[in-house]
Measured scan of single mutants.
Amino acid sequence: MFYPNSPQTSPQLTQIPYGQQYAMMQRQIQQPYHPFATTEPQARLYPYHYQGPIQQEQGGFITQQSTAASPQYVQMRVTPVDQSIMSGYPNQTANGSSSSSFNYNIHPQQQQQQQQQQQQLRHHAMPVGSVPLQDDRYRKQLIVNYLAPDVTSTDLHELFSRFGELDGARIIYDKQTNMSKGYGFVYFCHAEDAKEAVERMSGYEFHGKWLKVGYSTNPLNIVPSNSSPYVHAGSRGAAG
């Protein structure tokens, strides 16, 4: 039997160049792979992502010199942007860049009308829970959420009447099932009393439920100042 490094198959040491006398086997001759043993700084910083320098080929596509990437890492192929796409944008300079302001050559009167329309939209648009300043009635009506099913309009009136005089209180019921929808409205005579009720009743436990109280901004629920107070009856038909 002959071994790869046996004296019968191995040459004389004098015939082997210096430095390879003890590297006779194939696994010894093959050098191990060192990912950080390279002179390129990109490979030292990113050993798993770097795959060699990027070269520009004919046709405008950018390719990489090395083989496919590892399945664990996804390499994105980048193509140059066609400058003709950006030619339609206004205020574009000769080098292809555009300024931040756009001039669509709008007539001054049209621009003024658009600004007025935007101001009107901001004036009428009102986020949930906010209180408008032009109508004091919005500051007097509250919406009470997360009410228990057994709470009546009379219970709601008695709960909030300790903060001040009320114009009314009612629970909203479903017309088909005649069941409470879980929320109601309270109408105060003074805005200061309503503000105190919002601050003190939010998070209050009532009939096993934690109440959420806020201003009601729905104009359909506003009680006119010259109208008669609501009837605080315990029956659902009268309260709904």
Rank of each mutant, 00 (worst) to 15 (best):
I172Y: 03
Q115T: 03
Y146R: 03
R162E: 06
Q51Y: 15
Q56L: 13
Q83V: 07
P35V: 08
L166C: 01
A233C: 04
P90H: 02
P32A: 14
I54G: 14
N95C: 11
I171R: 07
S101G: 13
Q110D: 11
Q20S: 07
D136G: 05
S6M: 12
D136I: 00
G52V: 11
K140S: 00
G88V: 05
R162N: 15
G129D: 05
T67Y: 14
M86W: 10
Y89D: 15
P229E: 09
F185C: 02
V198T: 03
L121Q: 12
T79R: 06
Q65V: 03
S84P: 13
Q20R: 11
N105Q: 12
F188V: 14
F36S: 12
Q30D: 02
L133Y: 01
Q118W: 13
L211A: 05
F102T: 02
E57D: 15
H34Q: 15
N226D: 01
M86G: 00
Y18S: 10
P7C: 08
N5T: 07
C189V: 13
Y146C: 02
I172V: 04
S130K: 08
Y173F: 09
S99R: 05
S98R: 11
Y73A: 06
L13H: 08
A69Y: 02
K209D: 02
F36I: 06
P149F: 00
A197V: 08
Q114S: 07
L220H: 09
S161M: 14
I54Y: 11
T177V: 06
I62K: 14
Y3T: 02
Q12T: 10
P132H: 08
Q120C: 01
V198A: 02
A148F: 00
R27W: 15
S225K: 11
P4A: 06
G168K: 13
Q55I: 10
R77K: 00
G88I: 09
P41G: 10
T39V: 15
N145A: 10
Q112Y: 12
I29W: 15
S153Q: 02
R122G: 06
I106E: 14
P41E: 14
Y18K: 01
Y138K: 01
F185E: 12
Q111L: 11
A191G: 08
I172G: 01
L142R: 09
E205R: 07
P53T: 04
Y48H: 05
I54R: 02
T152F: 08
N178G: 03
S99V: 04
Q15M: 05
V128G: 13
D193I: 12
Q15P: 10
H232T: 04
E192R: 01
K181H: 03
D136K: 02
K140D: 00
L13A: 03
Y173P: 06
E158N: 13
S84K: 09
G214E: 14
G59T: 08
T93Q: 06
L13V: 02
P35R: 06
E192F: 06
P90D: 01
N178E: 13
V144S: 09
E196N: 13
Q31W: 15
P7K: 11
H123Q: 01
Q56S: 13
Q117L: 10
Q30N: 13
D155N: 13
L147Q: 14
S235P: 06
N226I: 13
Q51I: 13
Q111D: 10
I85V: 04
P108A: 06
D136C: 00
T14G: 11
N218W: 01
V74N: 01
L166I: 11
S99F: 15
T38R: 12
Q134D: 03
D82P: 02
T67F: 15
P90L: 09
P80F: 15
V151K: 05
D150Y: 13
Y230L: 09
T9K: 00
I172F: 03
S98D: 14
Y183C: 00
N221L: 07
T93P: 07
D193E: 02
Q111R: 08
F185N: 12
I143R: 03
Y48W: 13
K140P: 09
Y104E: 15
A37D: 10
